[in-house]
Every structure is written in structure tokens, then in C-alpha cells.
């Protein structure tokens, strides 16, 4: 932590801001742990495949499903071996990359596209709004399963196509949420005042509308992370999602399914990874929501006086 805060010694103002930020993070122990977890996951995603790629793919049929917590086969087998005798721990680390690519890619795409369309729909005239909303209805009614089969057939299976499928299916929720909030915010006194004072649309959106809409969107987005990872898992199970040799936590979960009663660790560990990542993202976003809200920040600062 101190390393991080010393990286920019030339800029005292930024440095102070960053220290306060970290101090506030430190006040909320759960959020602090969450941040550490996420840093770890990102690190795994960045360097995991390069470091452990071979270890994670080396099969050993006769040493399959070795139970966890046994150190005799080395650290990589601490969480047990999978159905082809590959070390679970190494596979979980390597899988972090594709998992994060799919989840982050799909959620971010859906969030950006959905929020933008939602802003437009909430802000623009009736006809455009109507058109966008009815498009959202169509997407909402189009089953993701069929979309996956179509994309698979026409474009072929790959991680970017998976992101495309999952992103499209998640657009309506961001779109509808944003629009609903915009409709409400737009009628608020201070926004009306800003309009009267001649503020531009862009300025009103960025200064007044987005800050109100963002917290809800972020809450949904963090939970969507889990949703997307699990949806991807179901699609793999049906044969229309990511398939080996690619690995994601969702795929590992679905591959562990037949072994649920004989080798529980196959589906459990990747499931736990999904749960922990979701939990960390959500706790951190809850913290951030308080930390970034001037009206709420006292909760983190007030405790600082009592703690110190």
C-alpha cells in the first residue's frame, strides 16, 4: 500500500487524495479485503496463462479426480485434480483470464450500450424513445439460447462471439433502468433549473443525470458479473458455449456437474471463485458508492475518528 501511494511523489495533491482514498478503504475491512481479492484475480488473469499454461493442461488419466488438501503432489494439486488429472489450482488461475474477458467484456458492453440508449430514450423526443424502448422489448423477448445457436452457426464459436451473445441479452436491463431514472431526474428541481439557466444537454447529462443513475447501474453490473459467468456455464453445458480447450470458471462448473456426487471439488472450486469474485465486486462497489457520495462519506470518515 505504501508503495502504491509513493508512486507519484511529485504531485502532492493527488498523493493526498489517494492516501485519503486508501485510508477510507482501510476503514471498511470488508471492502479492503474485496479490493485485495480483485487485484489478485486481475493478476491471475494477466500472468496466469503465461506462467501456468502448460501445468494446467498436462493430463494424467490414471491420476484423475485426486482429492484436495493433499500436498504430496505439489502445491498445484492443493485443491485436487480434475477429471483428466490436471491440477485444479493451476486451472483456476489460468481460467481467470478468459472468465474475466467474457464477464467484463459482456457486462461492460451491455452497460455502455444500454446506458447510452437509455439516456437517449429518456432524454429525446417521444418517437425516438418509443422506437428504442420497443427494440428493447424485442431483445428482451429473444431467448439468449436461440441467439447463441444462431451466432454459433453463422459466426462460429469463440470468446468474442460469446461476449457478443451475452452482451446483447443484457442490454435491456441497463437500458430500461437508465431510462426510468432519467425520466425521474429530468423532472427534479435542480435539473429544471439548469435547463432554465441554459446548460447544454451534454452538461446536464454528465453533471446531473449520470451521478444519480450510476449507482444503480453499478449495483446491477456487479451482480451481472456472476450472472454472465453462470449463463456462460449453462451454454457450455448445452454445447453452444465456450468449449475445451478454452477454459473458464463457468465451463469448469459445468464440466464438474456429472461428478457432483463423486468428486465435489470439480464443480465447487470454480463455483467458489465465481461467488468470491462477485462478492468482492459488490462489496467494493457498495463501499465506493458511499465513498464517492459527499452526502454519505461521513459514514467512512466518522468511523475513522473513533477507530484511530
Amino acid at each position: 500500500m505504501s508503495d502504491l501511494s509513493l508512486t507519484k511523489p511529485n504531485n502532492p495533491a493527488t498523493q493526498r487524495g489517494f492516501t485519503i482514498f486508501l485510508a477510507m478503504l482501510w476503514r471498511d475491512k470488508l471492502a479492503f479485503i474485496s479490493a485485495l481479492v480483485l487485484v489478485l484475480v486481475v493478476l491471475c488473469a494477466l500472468v496466469g496463462p503465461a506462467l501456468l499454461g502448460d501445468l494446467a493442461t498436462n493430463q494424467n488419466l490414471r491420476g484423475r479426480n485426486s482429492p484436495p488438501f493433499d500436498m504430496t503432489r505439489g502445491w498445484a494439486f492443493f485443491l485436487g485434480g480434475d477429471s483428466l488429472g490436471r491440477p485444479m489450482l493451476a486451472r483456476l488461475i489460468v481460467a481467470a483470464r478468459s472468465t474475466m474477458m467474457v464477464a467484463a467484456g459482456a457486462v461492460a458492453t451491455a452497460l455502455i450500450v444500454g446506458a447510452t440508449l437509455g439516456l437517449v430514450a429518456g432524454y429525446m423526443g417521444k418517437n425516438i424513445s418509443q422506437a428504442i424502448m420497443r427494440l428493447a422489448d424485442v431483445i428482451m423477448s429473444f431467448p439468449s439460447l436461440l441467439l447463441a445457436v444462431v451466432v454459433l452457426y453463422v459466426l462460429g464459436p469463440s470468446i468474442p462471439n460469446m461476449i457478443l451473445v451475452l452482451a446483447i441479452t443484457r442490454i435491456p436491463i441497463y437500458l430500461r433502468t437508465t431510462r426510468a431514472e432519467v425520466l425521474e431526474v429530468r423532472e427534479r428541481m435542480f435539473v429544471q433549473a439548469a435547463v432554465v439557466m441554459g446548460a447544454s444537454h451534454g452538461r446536464i447529462i454528465v453533471r446531473h443525470v449520470l451521478p444519480v443513475v450510476a449507482p444503480t447501474l453499478v449495483t446491477i453490473a456487479t451482480l451481472d458479473f456472476a450472472f454472465v459467468m453462470l449463463a456462460e456455464s449453462s451454454l457450455s453445458f448445452l454445447g453452444i458455449g465456450i468449449q475445451p480447450p478454452d477454459i473458464t470458471w463457468g465451463l469448469m462448473v459445468s464440466q464438474g456437474r456429472p461428478y457432483l456426487t463423486t468428486a465435489w471439488w470439480l464443480a465447487l472450486w470454480p463455483g467458489v471463485c465465481i461467488v468470491i469474485t462477485t462478492l468482492a465486486l459488490n462489496l467494493l462497489s457498495n463501499w465506493m458508492r458511499i465513498a464517492l457520495d459527499p452526502a454519505q462519506r461521513w459514514r467512512l470518515e466518522a468511523r475513522s475518528t473513533t477507530d484511530v
Binding site: L223, L230, V253, G271, I274, V275, L283
Partner: peptide
Amino acid sequence: VSIISLIGASAPDFW
């Protein structure tokens, strides 16, 4: 409430 509901929301349903 947060932790329990989040674990529920991110656990694989077939499991």
C-alpha cells in the same frame, strides 16, 4: 443480508 443474498445470487443453480 448482503453476503447471504450475494452468495445465493452467484451460486450455480444446478449445483
